[in-house]
Amino acid sequence: MLALVVAGVLLLRWVPRYGWFPLGLTLLTAATALAITAGQARRYRRSARGIRVGRIEADVVGVLGTTAAVALLGALALVVVVALPLR
């Protein structure tokens, strides 16, 4: 979550150079970090309960969602570097 925030804040440095599109990326990372934070307590309870009863379901949605979010962020950052004109 903190790594996402750091990456998102660094993207702000691109705003003077590439316009407002990087700001959208920062908002995307902030939204993802917020969603992760909001689910932290639920995930902790689920993990603790799973350890107690000796059985836990793999978090397919969480893992694949995080993968998709980071891959999308990387792809959009590539678009900024390769396709957007410098201001």
């Binding site: 790594a3 996402l4 750091v6 990456a7 660094l10 993207l11 440095r13 691109w14 980071v70 962020l73 990387g74 950052a77 570097v81």
Partner: peptide, 11 residues
């Protein structure tokens, strides 16, 4: 690690 590389690329 992926996010660190992404931040590195941005930096």
């Amino acid at each position: 690690t992926a996010l660190a590389l992404l931040a590195g690329g941005v930096a």
